[in-house]
Design a protein around this nucleic acid. Structure first.
Lengths: 102, 102
DNA sequence: TCCATAAATCGAGATATCTCGATTTATAGT
DNA sequence: ACTATAAATCGAGATATCTCGATTTATGGA
């Protein structure tokens, strides 16, 4: 749990929005039939929704991944990103401790 | 509750450390007798502890204040800063909501 | 093997943050 | 009025972040 890195990753409205969108797969276009079993979202879909360039989104997803907020799973040419709920909760606990613990 | 501003204020190790130090007045030199009733800490004490310049600390305290993490109270030539526990809790709730709420 | 598509990496200009020393403002005491 | 002290503001150089388009890498299909 690297607070530094996590807070930096959150310090950007687009990245926070992406994390929110990922709460619900239906914020994105339906998955291809062959990906129906995966609950992640590919970079292209995120890019389309965020209206930022492909390289920017790829970079952002990398930062969110390093921060522990998402996990990436590669399937063929696609990389599917989804939230890491456990790590997100761990982050919240860490911030709470840092801000409130005596 | 301006999340943007609050997260930006937290996105700096020195500022986070200051917020931690302010949890306990005894992290700083004892107050002057005439300030014994106040529980805030003056800029000079924070500066000494943080080993950063006076202008940097003044700037940082301004950011923490705008973010709602501290309140300032002026007494004569001194400005005393102390944590705003209620706002800090409000921030934590807001982050939690942003990260977890469906 | 060749082509098409998805994503990652690279390089760069624009913008923002960090941090400082110098200056200014506010207040208190003589 | 003058001096001293505390804090805020100003101006600037160094460093980091943002975001892009171009290129490269990885994979799958004809």
């Amino acid at each position: 749990m690297d607070l530094e890195r996590s807070i930096a990753a959150l310090n950007n409205p687009a990245r926070r929005r992406i994390l929110e969108w990922l709460k619900d797969r239906s914020n994105f276009p339906p998955a291809l039939p062959e990906h129906a079993d995966l609950d992640g979202v590919c970079v292209a879909y995120i890019q389309e929704k965020a209206k930022l360039s492909q390289s920017t989104i790829s970079n952002y997803m990398g930062l969110l991944k390093q921060a522990g907020f998402v996990v990436a799973e590669r399937h063929g040419q696609w990389t599917f990103y989804r939230r890491d709920e456990e790590n997100i909760r761990a982050f919240l606990t860490a911030v709470q401790d840092e801000l409130l613990k005596p």
